[in-house]
Structure formats: structure tokens, C-alpha cells
């Protein structure tokens, strides 16, 4: 095991990393060590987006990140944006359009959308949002309702 990389901040709380194995993925640390199961395990190979979290505000696939290798930047999961005003707006838009069915990809979509809206600003165009979200797979909705929810959120249009 390599030298202690120091604590990681998850949803505002420090998480010691000294005893975490070198090859443990952030996804597993979040879900099984910290009990933050809102982050979903899909493909574990970076292809589906279900495990999306924010690292210093940027979207990251937690299945591809090794917990001990991460820089000491704040990690935010779906549980950490409960009260966030942008997340509230995203949830409202997804609720209004019923942009979910089974719900397994949903936390990944919400976290990614929140991260993108914050990073790119409220005037981001819908085309840009769509492109950025194309790495999040959904098998139930056919994306139509998700697309309508995105349109509500992307004020910059078209």
C-alpha cells in the first residue's frame, strides 16, 4: 500500500484514506464504505454514466477513479446536492417531464446535469447539454422526456 494520500472530502465530510486498498474504486468507497448508494453501479467500465459524481464541480465517473489516487478535492454525490438550488431546479424539470422510468440511470443524469449547468452557466445551449449528456445511457425513456427536461433547463436555447 502506498503512502497515506490524506483525507478525501465527500459531501463536506473528511474521509480517511489510509486503510483503503490501492485498487479500490471511488464507486465502491462511496457505496460500500460510506453507504452512499445513490451513486449507481452500472457497467464499471466508464460506458454508462450511472456512477457520475462531481470532483471539484466537474463530472467524473466514479467507477474509473481510484480512491487513493484522487487529488484532495471535494467529491459531491447525489446525496450531497439535496439542498442545492440548481439540483432542485433539475429535479423539478425531470419531475415535470417524467424524465425517468426505472430510475437506475437517474442519479447519474441529475448529478451530470447539475455539474454541467454550474460549469457552463445557465445560458448553455440545449445542443451543448445534449452532447455532454450523451455519455449517460438510459434504456427506458428513449431520452424523449429527458430531452424535454433539458430544454426546460437550458435557457440559452435552441
Amino acid at each position: 500500500m502506498s503512502a497515506d494520500p490524506g483525507p478525501l472530502e465527500v459531501n463536506g465530510r473528511p474521509v480517511e484514506r489510509a486503510s483503503i486498498p490501492d485498487d479500490e474504486r471511488l464507486l465502491d468507497t462511496l457505496r460500500w464504505r460510506l453507504g452512499l448508494k445513490g451513486t449507481k453501479e452500472g457497467c464499471r467500465s466508464g460506458d454508462c454514466g450511472a456512477c457520475t459524481v462531481l470532483l471539484a464541480g466537474e463530472t467524473v465517473l466514479s467507477c474509473l477513479a481510484l480512491t487513493r489516487d484522487l487529488p484532495a478535492l471535494p467529491v459531491t454525490t447525489i446525496e450531497g446536492i439535496e439542498e442545492d438550488p440548481v439540483a432542485i431546479a433539475v429535479r423539478e424539470a425531470f419531475t415535470a417531464e417524467a424524465a425517468l422510468q426505472c430510475g437506475y440511470c437517474t442519479p447519474g443524469f441529475v448529478v451530470a446535469t447539475v455539474g454541467l449547468l454550474k460549469e457552463l452557466g445557465p445560458d448553455v445551449g440545449v445542443d451543448r447539454l445534449r452532447e455532454e449528456l450523451a455519455g449517460n445511457l438510459c434504456r427506458c425513456t428513449g431520452y424523449a422526456a429527458i430531452d424535454r427536461a433539458i430544454r426546460r433547463l437550458a435557457r440559452g436555447g435552441p
Binding site: T39, K40, T77, R91, A98, L100, G103, T106, P107
Partner: peptide, 22 residues
């Protein structure tokens, strides 16, 4: 129509098979 499961699923708060723990 608001789906009755929207609030829970949008918060990642529902338990799927992969989330089970004993």
C-alpha cells in the same frame, strides 16, 4: 402527472437489487 416514484429516484433514495446489504 407526477410519477409517485420521481422524488425518491431523483434523489437516488430507492433501493435496487444492487444496493441490498445485510
Amino acid at each position: 402527472m407526477t410519477r409517485p416514484d420521481a422524488a425518491g429516484k431523483l434523489r437516488g433514495a430507492v433501493t435496487f437489487g444492487t444496493d441490498l446489504e445485510r
